[in-house]
Amino acid sequence: MHQIPLPVQLRPEADFAAFVSGPNAEAVAAVTAWAARSGDNFLYLFGTAGSGKTHLLQAACRQVTQGDRSAIYVPLEHGELAPSILDNLELWDLVALDDIQAIAGDATWEQGLFDLYNRLRESGRCLLVSAYTPVSELPLTLPDLRSRLGWGPGYRLLPLPEDDCEHLLKESAKRRGLELGPDAVAYIMRRCPREPSYLMGLLEEIDRESLRRKCRPTRWLIRQIIGARKS
């Protein structure tokens, strides 16, 4: 059997409770309403890498599927996908497509996405799309697709300020049951990119290593891990 190493499975930590909104409270409210089907059916999120798009898309899908409805998360940046993955996605109640800039400019993908959009709309389903840039800056070749993506409201996700990153780090450590002392937190904040996806990855590694070595996440251990990451 051909293995499918695609990250379509929702990450366990990706839920709304674990998302630190910071300056993005309005976008988070819009996505939460989308998942509850009480807001706009079509939403567009944009922001740079690490701004939390994937987390929000997955959190929305998780919320939906924990009720009695279906939702599917599709990461388009994954090179192994073919446009046929968009076939019949209107069978799900909600569809979340991550990183559509990855397929912009490819005529077959764009046509597939345009057709999917129409089918979702016709069948009263919902679509949440994310990209790096606003719709008007996506290098799309199909104007029909561009105008449809711009039909629903678009929200920019701003990078989290330092305080919010620190808050996120502490809260996420707490959720993992990881005792991260104030000096360890300060150490990480001084030396690492203030970027949620980096910090979450680091936290996972700290958690794993401290379990493996059966030791507390001291500054020493953290310094080792950060050093190994840099090299």
Partner: peptide, 20 residues
Amino acid sequence: SNIRDLEGALRRLVANSQFT
């Protein structure tokens, strides 16, 4: 550009106003 963009802008305004 077109009416969809006008609607998109209006929806954004309404959502923003309701939120804030």
